[in-house]
Design a protein around this nucleic acid. Structure first.
Length: 722
DNA sequence: TTGTTCCAGCTTTTT
DNA sequence: GCTGGAACAA
C-alpha cells in the first residue's frame, strides 16, 4: 500500500495510468518535457514493488549509454537498491551481451571484436581498392550506407538477387565480400550486432525460450527511433506475451535518415491488438508561449498521431526574433545576449546555442572566445575515437586475435618500421588469393623467402613485436597490458616527433588510456566468461568515452539540434533559421524529409524552458560563397502573436506580416541576362554587363550610353526591358 | 619517407 | 573556404 502510494504519488493522472496499468502491451505517446523517463522509471519500480517482479525479470532498452545510465541511476534512487545486474542498456550493448553469451549459436568466434564505424569505413575502403573497383563510382561511404541499410532491414547479402543493374550488383558484390571479410577476421560492426542478435533468437528455439521466460516485461525508450531489425528483435522477445511497454513521440522522430522507422509505432498497434495507448500531454518544461509556438509549427505536419502539449505555467515572454546582417552579426548578437544573461545572474550552463549543422559552431566559438566566455561544443571526437587511442587499441586487438586484419592494416607501419607498399601489397595479395588473414599471409611470405632481406626483416620485426607483446601480456592485469603496449609499441616516440603541437595531448591521451584500463570495472559488465581485455575493447567500441573533460565548468552549451534531443535549457538560441540551411537544402524538395526537418525545429523549440531566441541572417558565407538566404519557412509557421522582433538594444513589437523580404520574390529573378538592353528613367539606354547578389541584394552593372558604368540595386530601380 | 600540392566534398549521429 | 585524403615529387 505504502509502496504503491510512494511510486505514483508524485505523478499526474496520465502518468499514473501508464505506471499502474496492468501487465500488457502499452504505447505511451510522451510529448517533449512530459516526464517520459519518469514514467519509464516509475513503471519499472511499480512492477518490482507492487507486482512483485524481480529486477532480473525486467528488460529496459535505450538508444544511448547516457540514457541507460540515467535510467539505472534513477531506478536505484527510487527503489533504494542496486540495479547493477539488471538488463538496462542500449540495443547494441544488450545485443553484444547476448552474442557474448551465445557465440556458438550466433555462429561467431568467441573472440569476436566490435568494430566502430571508423573501423568499418577503413575496411570497406581497403576492400574497394583490393577489388580494383572505381571508388569514384562506388564511394566507400556509400558502400557503407548500403551495407548498413541492408542490415538495418535485416537483409543478408545471400538473400539478395542480382538485378542486372551494375551499380546495385557491384554494391551487392561488395556486401558479400565484406561479410566474408568480417567472418574471417572475427569482426562485427554495429549493425551486425543487431542483426546477429536477431538471428540468434530467431534460429535458436531454446535461447529464445530462455529469454522469453526470463523477461516478463520489456521496456523501450525513444521507440520512434527504432529501426526494422530492432523492432523485429523486440517482437521475438515478446512473442505471444503482450508484454512490451514502449515510450515514444512521433513528433520527435528525427532519425529516419539513419533507418528509424516511424511505422513501428503504427505496426505496434497492429501487432499487439490488446494494447493500450496513453498520451502524456502536460508539459513541465516550457512557458505557454514557447509551447503554443511549438504546437503551431508541428501542426503543419500531416503525418502525425495527434497530440497537443499544454502547460499550467505562465505564458512567459514572447519569442524573440532577430534578423542579422550576416553570420558575424548573428553570432555577435547571441553572445551579447548571453553576456547580459550572465550579468543578470544567469548561469552559462543554462544557455544553449542550437544549430542545424556543425559548421555553424565556428562563428559562435570565435565570438565566445573573444569575450572569454567558457563554452562547450558537443559532438567532437570522443576519447576512444582519437587516432592515438585507436592505434593503441589496434595493438591490443591484434595481440588478442592475430587474424584481426582491420587492426593489422592500422598498425603494421604505425609507427613507421620500414614496411613499404610493395611488401604489404605482396601480403595482401597472398591473403586474398588464399582467403586467409594478413597475419597468416605474412607468415607464409616469410617462410617462402620471397621478400628482399630488408623487407623481410621489417615484416618479421612487426610480427615478432606482436608475438613478444602477447607473450609478455598473457599473465598481466588489464592495465599492465595496456601500459605494456603503450610503452613498447613505439607509439609514444612516434607521436613525440609529430609537429603541430599535438604531440603532448596525444601522449597524455595514451597515458589516460592506461588509467581508463585501470578504472575499468570488469565485473560490472561481465557475467560472461570473457577475458578482461576483450571486454575492455568492446567497451571502448560501444561507449566511445566522454567527449571532453571540462564537464564541470559552468559553460555555454553549443550543439546541433539533433544532439539537443532530450535536453533542456532555460535560455535557448535557435540560430541560422534560413531556407537551405534549416530546413537543409537537400530536404526541401521532399515532403517526408521536410516534415522531419520540421520535427527537428519542434525539438529545438521545445528545449527552451524560459526564453527562446530565433535568429537568421540576411547574408551568409556558405562554402566560401556569399549567399542571401530567405528566412526559414518555419518562421512563417509560428504565429505572429507569439513573436517579437529584437534589435541589439531595444525590443520592437512586431506589426507587419512576417516575411518582410518576401515581396522581392522571384518575379525579377532571371529577368536580366548579360547583354540585355534596358532603359533607365534617368540614365537612358544601356547594356547589362555584370550581375551579383540575390533577392534584395541583387545588383546589376550597366553600361549606359554617354553616361558610363553604373551599379544599380534592382530592388530600388525600375528598369525597362528593351 | 616525408613533405607538398591538388582535389573533392560539404546535413544530421549512436552504437 | 576549409579540410582530409591521395597523388606526386624530392
Amino acid at each position: 500500500m505504502n509502496k504503491q502510494i510512494s511510486i505514483i504519488d508524485s505523478l499526474n493522472d496520465a502518468q499514473r495510468l501508464a505506471v499502474s496499468a496492468p501487465n500488457q502491451a502499452m504505447l505511451i505517446l510522451a510529448g517533449a518535457g512530459s516526464g517520459k523517463t519518469r514514467v519509464l522509471v516509475h513503471r519499472i519500480a511499480w512492477q518490482v514493488e507492487v507486482e512483485g517482479l524481480s529486477i532480473h525479470n525486467i528488460l529496459a532498452v535505450t538508444f544511448t549509454n547516457k540514457a541507460a545510465r540515467e535510467m539505472r541511476g534513477r531506478l536505484e534512487e527510487l527503489l533504494q537498491i542496486s540495479a547493477h545486474a539488471m538488463w538496462i542498456g542500449t540495443f547494441h550493448g544488450l545485443a553484444h551481451r547476448l552474442l557474448r553469451r551465445h557465440p556458438k549459436q550466433a555462429k561467431l568466434a568467441d573472440t569476436f571484436q566490435v568494430m566502430d564505424s571508423d573501423d568499418q569505413l577503413r575496411v570497406i575502403k581497403r576492400l574497394v581498392k583490393g577489388l580494383n573497383i572505381d571508388d569514384s563510382k562506388w564511394p566507400p561511404k556509400q558502400v557503407m550506407w548500403f551495407i548498413n541499410g541492408q542490415k538495418d532491414e535485416g537483409v543478408r547479402a545471400r538473400y539478395m538477387l542480382e538485378s542486372g543493374n551494375i551499380y546495385q550488383d557491384t554494391m551487392l558484390m561488395l556486401y558479400k565480400a565484406y561479410e566474408e571479410f568480417c567472418d574471417r577476421s572475427g569482426l562485427v560492426d554495429f549493425a551486425e550486432l543487431l542483426l546477429r542478435a536477431h538471428e540468434l533468437l530467431r534460429d535458436n528455439e531454446d535461447v529464445l525460450q530462455f529469454y522469453q521466460d526470463r523477461f516478463k516485461q520489456v521496456h523501450v525508450d525513444e521507440f520512434q527511433d527504432t529501426n526494422t531489425i530492432q523492432y523485429a528483435w523486440l517482437r521475438l522477445l515478446t512473442e505471444g506475451k503482450n508484454n512490451l511497454f514502449v515510450v515514444g513521440d512521433d513528433d520527435q522522430s528525427i532519425y529516419a535518415w539513419r533507418g528509424a522507422k516511424i511505422e513501428n509505432i503504427y505496426n505496434f498497434q497492429k501487432h499487439y491488438p490488446s494494447h493500450q495507448v496513453i498520451k502524456l500531454e502536460q508539459n513541465y518544461r516550457s512557458t505557454g508561449n514557447i509551447l503554443k509556438s511549438a504546437n503551431a509549427l508541428i501542426n503543419n505536419n500531416d503525418s502525425r498521431m495527434g497530440k497537443e502539449l499544454w502547460t499550467n505555467s505562465e505564458d512567459g515572454e514572447l519569442i524573440s526574433l532577430y534578423t542579422a546582417f550576416n553570420e558575424q552579426d548573428e553570432a555577435y548578437f547571441v553572445v551579447e545576449k548571453i553576456r547580459k544573461w550572465v550579468d543578470d545572474g544567469g548561469l552559462r550552463q543554462d544557455v544553449a546555442i542550437l544549430y542545424r549543422s556543425n559548421a555553424q559552431s565556428r562563428q559562435f566559438e570565435e565570438k565566445l572566445m573573444n569575450t572569454a566566455t567558457p563554452y562547450r561544443v558537443y559532438g567532437g571526437l570522443r576519447f576512444f575515437e582519437r587516432m592515438e587511442i585507436k592505434n593503441a587499441l589496434a595493438y591490443l586487438r591484434i595481440m588478442s586475435n592475430h587474424n584481426d586484419d582491420a587492426s593489422f592494416e592500422r598498425v603494421f607501419n604505425t609507427p613507421t618500421r620500414g614496411i613499404g607498399i610493395k611488401t604489404i601489397d605482396a601480403v595482401r595479395l597472398i591473403a586474398r588469393e588464399q582467403q586467409i588473414s594478413l597475419w597468416q599471409a605474412a607468415v607464409i611470405l616469410l617462410n617462402n623467402n620471397s621478400l628482399s632481406a630488408r623487407a623481410s626483416n621489417a615484416l618479421k620485426g612487426f610480427l615478432n613485436l606482436i608475438k613478444q607483446l602477447s607473450g609478455e601480456a598473457k599473465e598481466a592485469a588489464l592495465f599492465e597490458q595496456v601500459k605494456l603496449i603503450v610503452e613498447k609499441s613505439g607509439l609514444i616516440e612516434f607521436y613525440k616527433k609529430e609537429k603541430g603541437g599535438k604531440a603532448e595531448v596525444r601522449i597524455e591521451n595514451l597515458e589516460e588510456l592506461v588509467n581508463a584500463a585501470q578504472m575499468f570495472d570488469f565485473d560490472e559488465e561481465n557475467e560472461e566468461n570473457l577475458n578482461e581485455l576483450d571486454m575492455f575493447l568492446a567497451h571502448a567500441a560501444l561507449e566511445g568515452g566522454e567527449m571532453q573533460a571540462d564537464d564541470y565548468e559552468d559553460c555555454v552549451q553549443l550543439m546541433t539540434l539533433h544532439s539537443s534531443k532530450g535536453l533542456e535549457f532555460k535560455l535557448v538560441f535557435l540560430v541560422g533559421l534560413e531556407d537551405g540551411l534549416f530546413p537543409a537544402q537537400q530536404s526541401t524538395d521532399d515532403v517526408a524529409r521536410l516534415e522531419e526537418e520540421r520535427r527537428l525545429c519542434y525539438v529545438g523549440i521545445t528545449r527552451a524552458m524560459q526564453q527562446l531566441y530565433l535568429t537568421h541572417a540576411e547574408s551568409r558565407c556558405l562554402y566560401g560563397k556569399e549567399t542571401n538566404p530567405r528566412p526559414s519557412r518555419f518562421l512563417k509557421e509560428i504565429p505572429v502573436e507569439f513573436l517579437q522582433e529584437v534589435r541589439i538594444r531595444a525590443n520592437v513589437a512586431r506589426s507587419m506580416s512576417m516575411p518582410k523580404r518576401a515581396k522581392y520574390s522571384a518575379q525579377q529573378e532571371g529577368t536580366y541576362k548579360l547583354g540585355q538592353r534596358i532603359r533607365h528613367a534617368k540614365f537612358g539606354e544601356g547594356v547589362v554587363l555584370q550581375m551579383e547578389g540575390e533577392a534584395t541584394q541583387e545588383r546589376v552593372q550597366i553600361n549606359f550610353q554617354g553616361v558610363g558604368l553604373k551599379w544599380l540595386m534592382l530592388s530600388y530601380t525600375n528598369l525597362e526591358l528593351l
